[in-house]
C-alpha cells in the first residue's frame, strides 16, 4: 500500500516496519514470522482504532482515495463478459461515463457509472469522471437500451460533480441533468443506485435516481463539495473540513435522514485495502435487489419510485425529522 492518508500516519509507519522485516527475512534468510505476525496484528488493531472514529473530512478523503475500487473494477468482476456502448448519438462519446451490459448470474444487467480513472493518464482521458452533457445523454440512452432488453440497471455514482467547462455550458449541462432527473422516473426496468465514492451534487444525481439507493460506508453525497461550500460561505477554501462537518454528507447522515435505503459496510480500513471483499459485498447486494424486484410489475415499480422520491426530503418528512431531533 503506497497511498496513506494523512490521518493514517501510524499505519504507514507500521507498514514500513513490516516491509523492512520482510526484506530482512529474505535477505538474511531468517525466520521473522513471529515478529511479523505481531506487527501485522498491531497494524490491524491500529486500523480498527483509526477507522472507528473518523471525522467527516477524513471520510471525504477515503471516498476520494485513488486506490478505491472504480467502476471498471466492479464491471470486470460482476459482468466479466461485458459489452460496452458508446456515444450520445448527438455529438460525441463522453468517456467520463461508461456503460456496459453483461451476464450477472445468468441474467443480463446494464451497469452505468462515472468512470474515474485508476491513474493520471486514465483520469485525463476520462476527465476525472466529471461528465459533460454528452455523458448524461449517453447514460439515459443506455437506460432506454436496457429497457429494450428488459434488463435491470445498476447506476454507480462516483464524481466530484458535472464538469464545469465552457463547452459543457454551450451544450446544455443544465438541460442534460434536468432531463435525466425527469426521464429516469419513466424507465421501466429495475434501477439500483450505488454511491461508491463521491456523490457530487447535480452531477451525481443526474444518474442517481432509482428504486433503491445505497451508499458504501465511506462514500459521501453532498449538494456541493466541502471546498466549494467553504469558498462560497466562509470565503476560505481551507475551511473544507469544517464545511464537511456542517454539510452532513456521510452515509450515516443520509441513512439517518431517510434519504438512502442502506449502507454497504466496507472492509476494515476501507474498500481500497481489500477490493475483493468490497466487490463481493456489492455482488450480494445486487443479487438481493434483483430478487426483491422480480415479483413487481412495471406500474407498481414506477409508482413506488416516484412516490419514494416525492416523499423523501418533503416538507412533512423533513419537518418531522427536524422536530424529533431538536
Amino acid at each position: 500500500m503506497k497511498n496513506f492518508l494523512p490521518f493514517e500516519k501510524p499505519l504507514s509507519e507500521l507498514e514500513e516496519k513490516i516491509e523492512e522485516l520482510e526484506q530482512e527475512s529474505i535477505s538474511r534468510q531468517i525466520d521473522l514470522s513471529s515478529s511479523l505476525e505481531v506487527l501485522r496484528q498491531e497494524f490491524a488493531e491500529e486500523t480498527k482504532l483509526i477507522y472507528s472514529h473518523l471525522t467527516p473530512w477524513e471520510i471525504v478523503l477515503i471516498a476520494r482515495h485513488p486506490e478505491r475500487p472504480k467502476l471498471i473494477d466492479y464491471i470486470r468482476y460482476l459482468i466479466p463478459d461485458y459489452v460496452y456502448f458508446c456515444g450520445d448519438r448527438h455529438y460525441t462519446d463522453d468517456l467520463a461515463i461508461f456503460g456496459a451490459m453483461g451476464m450477472f448470474q445468468s441474467k443480463p444487467i446494464m451497469m452505468i457509472g462515472h468512470n474515474k480513472g485508476k491513474n493520471t493518464k486514465e483520469n485525463i482521458l476520462n476527465n476525472f469522471g466529471m461528465a459533460n452533457p454528452e455523458g448524461y445523454r449517453k447514460a439515459i440512452r443506455l437506460m432506454r437500451l436496457a429497457e429494450k432488453f428488459n434488463c435491470p440497471i445498476v447506476l454507480m455514482v462516483d464524481t466530484q460533480g458535472a464538469y464545469p467547462g465552457i463547452a459543457a455550458e454551450e451544450h446544455g449541462q443544465s438541460e442534460a441533468i434536468a432531463y435525466n432527473l425527469r426521464e429516469i422516473f419513466q424507465i421501466q426496468v429495475p434501477i439500483l443506485v450505488i454511491v461508491t465514492g463521491e456523490g457530487g451534487s447535480g452531477g451525481a444525481l443526474g444518474i442517481g435516481i432509482g428504486d433503491k439507493v445505497l451508499m458504501l460506508e465511506y462514500s459521501i453525497y453532498s449538494v456541493i463539495s466541502p471546498e466549494g461550500c467553504a469558498s462560497i460561505l466562509y470565503r476560505d477554501s481551507s475551511k473544507a473540513s469544517l464545511a464537511a462537518e456542517k454539510l452532513k454528507l456521510t452515509s450515516h447522515d443520509l441513512m439517518q435522514f431517510g434519504l438512502i435505503d442502506d449502507i454497504l459496510p466496507e472492509p476494515l480500513g476501507g474498500a481500497h485495502r481489500d477490493h475483493k471483499t468490497m466487490l463481493e459485498t456489492v455482488k450480494k447486494e445486487i443479487q438481493y435487489f434483483l430478487d426483491e424486484q422480480t415479483p413487481l410489475n412495471k406500474k407498481t415499480r414506477l409508482d413506488r419510485r416516484m412516490e419514494k422520491f416525492l416523499k423523501m426530503a418533503s416538507y412533512e418528512t423533513s419537518l418531522n425529522l427536524y422536530q424529533s431531533s431538536s
Binding site: A178, K248, L249
Partner: peptide, 26 residues
Amino acid sequence: GARMQEGIFSLMQMARTSAAIGKFQE
C-alpha cells in the same frame, strides 16, 4: 441554485421538482 444551508435536502429537491413536473407533462 440549491440552498447550501440545507445540504443534501436541497439537492433532493432537484429530483422532487423534476419528478412532479414529469408526471404533469406526461
